[in-house]
Simulated scan of single mutants.
Amino acid sequence: MTTAEAEILDELESELRAEGVRITRQRMAILAALAGSTDHPTAEELLARSRERDPSVSLATVYRTLSVLVESGTVLRNDFEGAGARFELANKPHHDHLIDLDTGDVIEFTSRRIEKLQEEIAEELGYDIVFHRLELYGRAKKKV
């Protein structure tokens, strides 16, 4: 485990403790799986990764732990069409998502042009953007 992953793990553990959740071996395995994620895993994928650390982790424990972390704002639940619920840490820098409709892959991207255009549109309509989420759905172009 890298230093960055260890710091994330400590933060996640603190969030659960602040919510009054007892920290168990199984929950630590789930937190470690989240801390080490570089993708957008499903609950089932987190279960498999957690079981690599502790085979006694149950799907119910994964769901309960995710529920607390989502409620506290530490973890984001993304409900992508065609890809189901995916989870990611909330402390990542802002980004948008492209979801591959054929594979379910979730690709993170950032675009200054899109961000600027959104700000311009909000300004024209008399609004300040507080939060936004952009999801693009597509299929990879066939190579000719």
Rank of each mutant, 00 (worst) to 15 (best):
D39Q: 05
R27L: 04
V106L: 11
E135L: 06
S50V: 01
I99V: 15
D39L: 03
I8E: 02
P55D: 09
V21S: 04
E52M: 07
E119G: 06
L98Q: 03
R139T: 14
G36W: 00
T61W: 03
A48F: 06
A29H: 04
K92Y: 09
L89W: 00
G104Q: 08
E52W: 07
A90R: 10
L59Q: 09
T61F: 02
Y137W: 09
F87P: 08
S72N: 11
A90I: 07
R53P: 01
E45Q: 15
P55E: 09
T65K: 12
H132A: 12
A29L: 04
I30H: 05
K142H: 09
G82A: 09
K141T: 07
E81S: 12
L47M: 01
T110W: 12
A6R: 11
H132S: 14
Q26A: 11
S14M: 05
E7H: 08
L9R: 07
H97E: 02
K142F: 07
A43M: 07
F131G: 02
F109I: 06
E13N: 05
F131L: 12
L47V: 02
K141S: 11
V21E: 13
E119T: 09
L101H: 02
L117D: 08
I8L: 07
A140F: 15
E11S: 11
R25L: 09
T38R: 14
I129M: 08
L101A: 13
A29R: 05
R64L: 07
N78Q: 12
G126N: 12
G104R: 07
S50R: 00
R51Y: 03
T110H: 12
A35T: 08
K116V: 10
A48G: 04
D105S: 09
N78C: 05
S37C: 06
S58N: 07
E7T: 02
D10L: 05
H40E: 05
I129K: 12
L89C: 10
R112P: 12
S72I: 10
P93Q: 13
E45A: 11
N91P: 01
N78K: 03
K92I: 04
